[in-house]
Design a protein around this nucleic acid. Sequence first.
DNA 1: AACTCCACCAACCGCAGCTAT
DNA 2: TATAGCTGCGGTTGGTGGAGT
Length: 285
Amino acid sequence: MGRSPCCEKAHTNKGAWTKEEDERLIAYIKAHGEGCWRSLPKAAGLLRCGKSCRLRWINYLRPDLKRGNFTEEEDELIIKLHSLLGNKWSLIAGRLPGRTDNEIKNYWNTHIRRKLINRGIDPTTHRPIQESSASQDSKPTQLEPVTSNTINISFTSAPKVETFHESISFPGKSEKISMLTFKEEKDECPVEEKFPDLNLELRISLPDDVDRRQGLVGHGKSTTPRCFKCSLGMINGMECRCGRMRCDVVGGSSKGSDLSKGFDFLGLAKKETTSLLGFRSLEMK
DNA sequence: AACTCCACCAACCGCAGCTAT
DNA sequence: TATAGCTGCGGTTGGTGGAGT
């Protein structure tokens, strides 16, 4: 079947934006606001496709963008968030006000990857490089992620680290969550003290379990796909794109922090009023 | 001065997810 | 339920400028 192209390529400019194009785009968005990117170019008198306009605005023209070098604190925050979220650049960007996913992605690929490698840490797995390569050669241990039902989460923060595993088992279930934790060798200061703005509290349960326990309350059929935020446990309201289907109900009953009450990954759902960044910042783009 | 190499980053592309019909 | 359209995301590319030879 295929999809129609997002724009008529023959009549659109590509490549670097000119000053005049920037000014037109800024003026139009100031007057009419963001959104409806497909029709925006024509309305704004730009020979660009909507995608290009959106990207230009989000990554370069938006007034709330922070230009300039990344600070050491931002570096470490990105590393920690990446160890938790992987290449979810938009989510990572949501925790760094004024930074865009594209900017962070570029910065990661050009600076942080090298920085981690110099520290002896595999930038993909966030494990010490020797262990990371060794684990690829050998069979996984009991606590390694051997099935799709096992989740492995790693934290890292210091060049010299020792590692240990923690596992969370679920009563009556064979699945377990394995956590590879990096403990700093010299500095015992917990991550939370170094980065008070980074809430690393995790509450994790198996999605299937949650749905069963909740009786699929308000989430439609069991085959309904979750949005990514929902799968991360951001289920307490507006942050969830499928909220109409489930989150209001489930989130509304989610008091306390035990596993049976669902997710609160990164503490985003509960911390909206108290953390430095409300969840809306995740949607700032 | 001329050339090559490399790092950086803006922009593009394809795809997935969501929504409307 | 199926289909089409739109938006957003993440991987990749290509242009540019600085450093090195």
